[in-house]
Design a protein around this nucleic acid. Sequence first.
DNA 1: AATGTTAGAGTTTTT
DNA 2: CTCTAACATT
Length: 784
Amino acid sequence: MHFPTGVDTPTPDGAHPSALLLQGLNDEQSAAVTLPADHALILAGAGSGKTRVLTTRIAWLLQTGQVSPGGVLAVTFTNKAAKEMLTRLSGMLPVNVRGMWVGTFHGLCNRFLRAHWKLANLPQTFQILDIQDQLSAIKRLSKQFQVDEERFPPKQTMWFIAGCKEDGLRPKDVDVRDPDSRKKVELYELYEAQCQREGVVDFGELMLRSYELLRDNDPIREHYRRRFRHILIDEFQDTNKLQYAWIKQLAGPVAQDGGTVFAVGDDDQSIYAFRGARVGNMADFVREYQVQHQIKLEQNYRSFSNILDSANHLIDHNKNRLGKNLHTTQGAGEPVRIYESPTDFAEAQWMVEEMKQLLREGQNGDGTQGVAHRHEIAVLYRSNAQSRVIETALFNAAMPYRVYGGLRFFERAEIKHALAYLRLLENPWDDTSFMRVVNFPPRGIGARSIEQLQDAARALGCPLHDAVSTLTGKAGVNITAFVAKIDVLREQTQGQNLRQIIELLLDHSGLVEHYQSEREGADRIENLTELVNAAESFVTQEGFGRDAVAMPVNGEMINPDTGETLSPLAAFLTHAALESGDNQAQAGQDAVQLMTVHASKGLEFDCVFITGMEEGLFPHENSMNDYDGLEEERRLMYVAITRARRRLYLSHSQTRMLHGQTRYNIKSRFFDELPEHALKWITPARSAFADTHASPHNAWQQPTWFNNDWQTKASAPTPVLQRAPTTSGPNAWVRSGVQVFHTKFGEGTVIGLEGVGDDARAQVNFPRHGMKWLALSVAKLRQV
DNA sequence: AATGTTAGAGTTTTT
DNA sequence: CTCTAACATT
């Protein structure tokens, strides 16, 4: 299959085909698409048609003959975005998508490392560790080297290692100041050695090793620099240090013959600093590449102007911005509605009633008021824990809903078990997989046997698999039988197709049998069946053009760069590791959408509820003490607001149940940062706190609506907050302004007190750990 | 090996 | 409060 590109063919209506591509674009979009082949930065506001510009740019470059598919590298963060780009692209042009490198950072790095596994010093069958695998690998290592898990929790070690890799640092590059960090670096070193021995890489390693190969291998680097004439990056504001460095390797230094970089992003929507994203990469890029073309896409096609005004007004309170203002030709639309409730429960109740009303109006089809479908209603919250009370209310009202997040398909235990078997077929040295299934289903290999094996492997400095033959006694017999079983399976699966391989495995591993005897195993078996289907559809349609190395040829895949082959099984395992799958496909039921604000990025809905707009929650208490943290919270709020097309609700609650304790929250400072003219305060007048205890239902059943003035509300705090906390017990002496010592946080100053009796809490500012709320009945405080 | 108990932690997350 | 992992018991 070959399509000529860059050859203009006349269209039926006589228009030039590249002009056709530009149809319907506004001036800025069009300018961005048709920029000359120079480095460029596109500042694309929310809802400004970012993806469209990106894909049309590629289509335009191809159609005007400036580049062939092989010369294009387009990189995104999520598989969803990559898929979207390819779908749209093939809708615009009859282009051979296979030759293009379009994918996620990790997907492309994987493709690169599969092609150059030898140079990258990896086994051809290297496996990819996800977070769970990584953690269990580190736990294993900590046990083996008798690391004190109190002082060095495996999770922390994991974050440390991931953080180093995001910054492009190997153990030798890490600054060692104190004994603790020396130990961490040591663990990083041991972890690296273990991964190398076992032939596995984690997500960070995919990036780092690709980067290093490009950096250190001149012919490889030059090859790819010559090849990729156009490098396009989506969500550039979310790139970390290493990802930017990787891009620089591919693009080469400025003003040399490397490709051009077309970066698209929005600094106002940078919400992933906590996982290493550096907004600063945008400014660095402009400086380092002397970017001459910067285009702002500020026309918003999504929301009415009350919503956009709110977003603009809010984000204007951030100091560190490149600067951008969204505008629309649509009218003001409805006001942004703000609601205050006495309890989180009442907040959820009110929300459900409001939804019912909206859906009723939508059914009647009377104009812009209602919403026709439940899936056009989204509930956003700052943290996952908030979903429970909302779910309860929705459930009680029999309102179908869907919660985003949680376990994805390939992360389920039973699926991971099956995949572990498959991985052992490919790479028997993968100890993480070995450990996962050596005794699952149970086959009499207990802790003692495994210890024996681990001791032997450590003595020999080899993976578990290679140490099995040295074992004696019962342990030796059982484990040898296990390894033999895997070996037989490997034999039997030769020449089988992927479906047959998995079916054989499910049968011979005893997984299905095991779950059959389990009380609640039916779901798991269903999922295992689904795994067969997933493999089937992967082979028949999905995948081969994307993260897999190459095209299927006679059932095998040939890497166009090296001629190496990759089996369908290997490709499927890669697919499973890099695309953890949808979290739940929930059978097409039209349902209200529940998700965190983070998860909502990139989505849009007719109607959006942003809930829990309270100090300590949103902005979150862990982020609001340093300036950068607060700015990121504000960007998060900006993202949340700009999800709404027509109607936006912001709600907060005076009290909220968190970690089993009632918290008294004041409303979010973000309310102060919204334009009064766009708001409508719809809190019932009698939503006094006292109602909470009497009857939480009355507050919303017959509300009296009124437009409230923000200033008046702000100056009249709820009575509870003013009530002087009375405390008994060991911490009764705690008063505002007092210096205290906490065993974990060190010295701090008491800022305020609230609550009564067992609920009494002190807000304490710890210079080293920030602001904390401490329950006086629990916290061990000492007066300084 | 299965089942029961307890301690501890609990922003945000894709690959 | 609620979930999980580690530990303890049968």
